[in-house]
């Protein structure tokens, strides 16, 4: 047994634990850069439109206790695009959730971007249309360094919300 070496080993242990508990620091993000967070969940239209029933058919079904709309469950993928100063930085198709692809589709993306003034355009398509978009929103915004800029979407509020 040697108490001096023992003290040294204890000290080394403490230094090791103490140091690695806070250091070296991890550089997660550049403080000069802004980050856009795009997050949305939205149910796209169904792949096949529900069968239109006549009022008479609806009545009949209601009497029998059957469901009164007739729909295929599967939904379309959601197309989402993001432009910054006219250049497309994000373009993706989000798959509906659920085993039968009948739920809302979700998008969650983080994009680092230089701080400063930018024109940001967000577009979304939730229907089967071939061209154009169902929702679009564009705004010139000033992005502060080291801060998040969030883009969310709520159809009931009319579409995209920038913050």
């Amino acid at each position: 047994m040697n108490r001096v070496v023992q003290a040294f080993l204890y000290a080394a242990f403490a230094a090791f634990v103490g140091y690695l508990s806070v250091a070296p620091a991890y550089q997660y993000a550049d403080p000069e850069i802004a980050v856009i967070k795009l997050s949305l969940s939205h149910a796209a239209e169904r792949v096949e439109a529900c069968v239109k029933l006549t009022p008479q058919q609806i009545n009949e079904r209601a009497m029998k206790g059957e469901p009164i709309n007739e729909c295929e469950r599967e939904r379309l993928p959601l197309a989402v695009e993001l432009d910054v100063d006219g250049a497309t930085v994000l373009s993706l198709a989000a798959v509906p959730s659920g085993l039968w692809k009948d739920g809302p589709a979700s998008v969650y993306e983080r994009l680092a971007i230089d701080a400063g003034v930018h024109t940001i355009t967000a577009r979304l398509r939730d229907s089967a249309r071939e061209t154009g978009w169902d929702y679009a929103y564009s705004e010139e915004v000033s992005l502060a360094p080291g801060r998040y800029f969030t883009i969310t979407f709520r159809a009931e509020n009319g579409g995209f919300e920038f913050r």
Partner: peptide, 14 residues
């Protein structure tokens, strides 16, 4: 502050 991007973080590496 959820509006601020954490830049440099003291990390517990364990």
């Amino acid at each position: 502050d959820l509006d601020v991007v954490p830049a440099e973080l003291g990390f517990d590496w364990f």
